[in-house]
């Protein structure tokens, strides 16, 4: 009796996720000049327009820069924390892990507002630095979870073996532990970057005249004009995301990445 319900839910889930994407992608290839479904004819003209529209390109570069920096920071903080949680003799491991995963639960608008109030108003920080702090916090759960998943899979005896063969703890870390974790860290980085680039709530709250991310710029654009260029830009982002997801799946595997979250 359970199966048909599960199957129906799965189908509904896929429909809810995929149908909007189909609409956007189809609209992007339209030859017409309004954001309308079904598309009128097929052309690549709106892709051309999107790639030539300077605010989009500028925002894309900003977004990427922010994503790369936030990801690097999140990994620099997250990887040592993961090691401490999994291998160290840390009191209150669960609490520490919970703390680092909490950005997944706290509504981003709340985080955004808090950062706005405390950092931008309170400490007079600029948009970019505040956004960097916000995005880094948002990426931490990925850094901790994904590296944690690959660390949990790694044999703890590896480090002991290295020690036994004459390696100091530091040497063992750099020659054995870190290389073994590399695929996990790589996927954590990819996932963080995707999350950062796609983020709207934080970026919206903390935007400024001189620093604006791609999703926010697209949102602004849609409010003023109603042409399919935005659909084309979305399709390009989608394509890039799919490529990155495939790379992450190939290197570590989603079952391992997300299996951890359900524990």
């Amino acid at each position: 009796m359970k199966r048909p319900i599960t199957a129906a839910l799965a189908v509904i889930g896929y429909v809810i996720m995929i149908v909007p994407i189909i609409f956007v992608v189809a609209t992007a290839f339209t030859a017409g000049s309004t954001l309308r479904f079904p598309p009128e004819g097929i052309s690549l003209r709106w892709f051309d327009e999107a790639l030539g529209y300077e605010p989009f390109i500028e925002a894309a570069i900003s977004s990427l820069g922010l994503a790369v920096l936030a990801t690097a920071l999140a990994l620099l903080v997250g990887v040592p924390v993961t090691l401490a949680i999994h291998r160290g003799k840390l009191p209150g491991k669960g609490l520490v892990e919970g703390l680092f995963l909490s950005p997944l639960i706290v509504p981003e608008l709340v985080v955004g507002l808090a950062l706005y109030q405390q950092l931008m108003i309170g400490m007079d920080l600029d948009n970019f630095s505040t956004l960097l702090v916000g995005h880094t916090a948002l990426m931490l759960p990925y850094a901790v979870r994904v590296t944690g998943a690959s660390l949990a899979l790694a044999d703890p005896a590896l480090e002991e073996a290295a020690r036994g063969l004459g390696a100091s703890p530091l040497r063992a870390f750099f020659t054995v532990t870190l290389p073994v974790l590399r695929p996990g860290i790589f996927s954590a980085g990819l996932l963080s970057m995707v999350t950062s680039v796609n983020n709207v709530p934080l970026s919206l709250l903390l935007q400024g005249r001189d620093f604006r991310t791609l999703p926010v710029t697209m949102l602004d654009y849609v409010q003023q004009s109603y042409d399919p260029m935005v659909a084309a830009a979305s399709t390009l982002i989608l394509a890039a995301t799919v490529v990155i997801a495939v790379i992450a799946e190939r290197t570590v595997g989603f079952a391992k990445i997300f299996g951890g979250i359900n524990q």
Binding site: E160, A161, A162, P179, V180
Partner: peptide
């Protein structure tokens, strides 16, 4: 010299 039950060979 120690040989572990899991062998603990460095996979990389």
């Amino acid at each position: 010299g120690m040989v572990f039950q899991s062998y603990a060979l460095f996979p990389h």
